[in-house]
Write a protein that binds this DNA or RNA. Structure first.
Lengths: 225, 225, 225, 225
DNA sequence: CATGAATGAGAGTTCATTCAT
DNA sequence: TATGAATGAACTCTCATTCAT
């Protein structure tokens, strides 16, 4: 599988030559940092670790970031950006509330298998400064509110059985968030499998009556995989 | 609520007098440590922090623990002990697979609102030594296997609709585990509310046909609370 | 060999009963401390180590000694006392200078196989306070002067070939002192073997002419061993 | 004496400028450490002590060594290297066993007056890790075996009177090793004086018959000094 | 007396960050 | 621009010594 091989490719190649897009280098730092943060946590990852994996020296990192924490914050931002993308797409699409929830789970679960996405939910918020923390928290609240609104929409349009939207959202979000804790790229389950299965399983509990109708709730895409 | 007020009471009273039950003191250290670990993470909690909150000095901690990591491990052990208790009780009880899953969720969710329980799923395993890590991992695997077996039992006895037990277990466990990330004692939801609601919500997706029958799946106890 | 068995016997028996000669207990502390100091050095021996081997608690040690250093100093004093004893005996005895040197080596070498004697030369003087250091240094100088005077006596009475007494004394004293570095009670060489062999070997180089006459220089006692 | 004055010159000059041969700096650390270890012992020498004497800060030392113990081990290695050098030279040279022993004593005694050489025999092996200890012990055994083989060679070629090579080696090695305990650069005896005198004195006891032949056993070099 | 408890002082080590080249 | 060098602050852990029972 060439794509996965490409993904495994170390990011230090971006620093191979002197003349290279600085933006590319910044991203390479970010990707490497995200990897390490997920492997060893932010606190146990030293700037030396990051530099070493990139085949550069520690002070060189300061050309791209002012503080260690800034690297962390950028990881969060990249991750939340990924979520944002799919969320707005879904919100704008047509369909019942239940279908939107299914789409949400599907695409959110996918993000939880990508390094930057995992960072958002797996890394310790306590490592962020007060201000950065507020930024991230605001973002997370937004996601939660979005999911809750989909559920309420479903209740209104009759696709979802009456329930407490808050509890339902916590439950669904929790299940999906937790993926970032156990997912391994090298593991037996592919991201698509996980995403589509979660989408089906988690909407089953919400659906009104006829469970048969749920099959359609899962997006068409992944079923092909 | 006097009970909760009592629980909030700082643990340093155990160290008020020099001659006092050492076991009580050890527990006071553990409780305080668990609090701090949840507030600030293990890595950012210094022994001075723990000592300060207990109104003692740092080296005094070494009367009760040999290393900082030992404190962490004991928190894990206490927490897993709590889970173990309820698990064996449920496993031995009568009932359909679905009922057992509901009972599992109910009691596990409750544990996730208790500090030591939260520690098990919220703290970073990377702070444990290889050996301690193995111990904790073994324990977690056990929990997961238990849940999966309840689900399989339910599929066999017809109380649960056919599904992939692995995915279902991941999904349920994830939802419940995540509680430890957002639950706050001072928050609007009580532990019992959360536990009973999660038990109901999460089993709804599993149940075969008539969702009405699920009401009985949630334990009677908490409804009285 | 009952005597050696007795010597191996741990010293904590002195603390077995409450009512026991305090002097005996003090000595037990000293013997145990000497053992440990030789095994692990003064610096790496904690009071807890000593207390543990004596089956008592650390503060109990403070009933017999005011400071850790006092224990060390007492070890030195006991050791130098042993040397002093034999030295005065030899000085008072009749015989040529060479015979006195031989007797000195023999008895000094013996002391170097006894724990307290080894302490004198093996332990680090830097651990002593200025005052205690002066005391010990004074003592060591005394020993050296004594040996040098024996040599000079020998040169005068013709039993020793003319040489620089200072260098000769350094050389002989060094050879004997070094015993405390490699001697092991459980080793292949007994204390008497070492002592008598060293007495013979080291005087050989001093003796005037006929080396055969040296046989008599070594004390008769040990030759039987 | 300008050479000695130069040697006394503090090593911190190596750290005067930031860009300077790192090897020189490493050596400066080593030399300063050796000085301090001999003055106050390894255990009582803190990294701050070393850093202070070099006019740098403690963490700067970690640019050159990973652990405090590594500094110690490098001192040992430097010292054993010095001994090794002279040993191989002697072993390869022509001459009777007695002459080789004399040469050994002469050059070994010289090493015992050099800081790194003194470290080898004066510092406490107990401060080394198990592995490093093995390395050093192996080395010391090698020295001892070398000396013993010279003695046996001498017995075979008739230059040395029959004796127990083990005891003789212990005695000679002890006398020379002990030099590192009392030698002081500022003292009345120069290194060469000590070395040549010891070579003569210590071989006197070994030589067969005619003591006159011994004069030639001492290397010619030092007699000129 | 004897002891469990507690502490102050200090050590080695790590690391984000800055400086100087 | 990029880097080797250096540092200050912080943390874990140890231990001789003293207190209180």
């Amino acid at each position: 599988m060439p794509k996965s091989a490409l993904a495994q490719q170390p990011h230090w190649k971006a620093f191979a030559s002197r003349r290279r897009d600085p933006t590319t280098k910044r991203e390479a730092v970010l990707k490497t940092a995200a990897e390490l943060f997920l492997e060893k946590s932010y606190g146990r990852t030293s700037l030396d670790d990051i530099a070493e994996r990139l085949n550069i020296t520690k002070p060189a990192l300061y050309h791209y970031f002012h503080k260690k924490e800034e690297i962390l914050l950028e990881c969060y931002r990249w991750g939340t950006g990924l979520i944002e993308e799919s969320l707005t797409e879904i919100a704008g699409s047509a369909g019942t509330g239940l279908e939107k929830v299914a789409a949400f789970v599907y695409s959110y679960a996918n993000v939880m298998t990508v390094n930057f996405g995992r960072c958002v939910m797996r890394l310790d918020e306590g490592d962020l400064s007060t201000q950065a923390l507020e930024e991230v928290r605001t973002y997370k609240r937004k996601i939660d509110r979005r999911l809750r609104s989909f559920i309420q929409e479903g209740i209104r349009d009759g696709s979802i059985a009456p329930c407490d939207p808050k509890i339902a959202a916590f439950s669904i979000a929790g299940a999906v968030n937790w993926i970032c804790m156990w997912y391994e790229p090298a593991g037996p389950l592919t991201a698509e499998e996980i995403a589509s299965q979660f989408a089906r399983t988690l909407t089953q509990g919400l659906a009104r009556r006829k469970p048969d109708s749920l099959r359609r709730a899962a997006p068409a895409g992944p079923s092909a995989d």
